[in-house]
């Protein structure tokens, strides 16, 4: 039995497997299918300073080995989270992490300040990469100047572990990663979804109400893996890798590419207990290859 513990900033994870924001609700939705205490953490649904209705239906299109979504950060706002959701999720025996989203820097600050006060939320994931909101979101994460501004502002008010979620919809993701590292991010997580589009040929219309949406699932894995690999070589802070992870082999590949921890996203929809299976599989892999801890294989590609 290998040691699966890893650290991200001040955050200790019992193992490197977590679930990705927007694919796992608040964890509550999955309690019938798995034991949350078996995984390293849960990144909860994107939370904003105020209530958002999200985009109009249709918000989803299935694609070969993946899907497009255009949910648009539907959530009831941070105050509702604190009063109605936090009292329940704080009881879960794993790291419950809030994904903080917004359209303006003030909104990010407002939300982060409030989450900072919650004793049992050990970290936030700053979402500067949501492709599905008209203002803000991804706009912050696609150029260094705005990424720098928003991370700096949030770092000023948020004292615990700050993870910044990066957009793949950029020319050079390492440039953004280095920028947010310089502003005090404790870790980066990547990738968020890739902007894509689906068309209904019979109706001669876009499938999504928003025309474009975010692509996720196994189809994005090679791109995600490449970006994790590049980013790991370019920053000193930990990288949390994600993008199409569907089984233990995928997870191992992301760790070898340089991920200290990984997130499982879209595949939770296919197998709601996949994250626990991946934890077991990592253990088995490490034993089979004679490693004592998962840390030994982080960024551990053979030369």
């Amino acid at each position: 039995m290998a040691n699966l513990k890893v650290s991200i900033g001040n955050l200790s994870l019992k193992n490197p497997v977590m679930t990705a924001s927007g694919t796992f609700g608040y964890g509550t939705e999955f309690l019938d299918f798995m034991d949350l205490s078996c995984i390293g953490g849960v990144f909860m649904k994107g939370t904003t300073a105020t209530h958002r209705e999200g985009n109009f239906y249709p918000r989803m299109a299935e694609t070969p080995s993946g899907m497009l979504n255009a949910v648009g950060l539907q959530n009831k706002g941070v105050d509702y989270f604190i009063s109605h959701i936090y009292p329940e999720v704080r009881k879960y025996d794993t790291n419950m992490i809030v994904n903080v989203s917004g359209s303006t820097i003030e909104e990010y600050i407002n939300c982060s300040e409030k989450i900072n006060e919650l004793e049992d939320i050990p970290a936030i994931e700053l979402n500067i990469s949501c492709p599905n909101v008209k203002q803000g979101g991804m706009a912050f994460g696609t150029n260094c100047q705005s990424a720098s501004q928003v991370v700096k502002a949030v770092r000023n008010v948020y004292r615990k572990t700050l993870i910044v979620k990066l957009s793949p919809n950029v020319t050079d993701i390492t440039e953004i990663a280095r920028t947010v590292e310089a502003e005090g991010a404790d870790a980066v997580s990547l990738i968020n979804t890739l902007v894509g589009m689906a068309i209904d040929a019979e109706k001669r219309r876009p499938v999504l109400s928003t025309v474009t949406g975010g692509l996720s699932g196994p189809c994005v894995k090679p791109i995600a893996l490449r970006m994790v690999y590049q980013t790991h070589k370019s920053v000193r802070i930990p990288v949390i890798g994600m993008g199409g992870i569907s089984n233990v082999t995928d997870a191992i590949e992301f760790i070898l590419a340089g991920s200290t921890a990984i997130q499982i996203g879209t595949y939770n929809f296919i197998d709601p207990a996949i994250s626990v299976k991946v934890v077991d599989g990592i253990n088995e892999y490490l034993d089979r290859h004679g490693f004592n801890s998962v840390e030994e294989i982080i960024g551990g590609l053979e030369k």
């Binding site: 918000r59 979504n69 929809f269």
Partner: peptide, 21 residues
Amino acid sequence: NLMACGIGACLCCVENTTEGH
């Protein structure tokens, strides 16, 4: 409605109602 997860996690299958999405 088109659906991904079926368990209320992805928020893709929403219907606009008097109570919102």
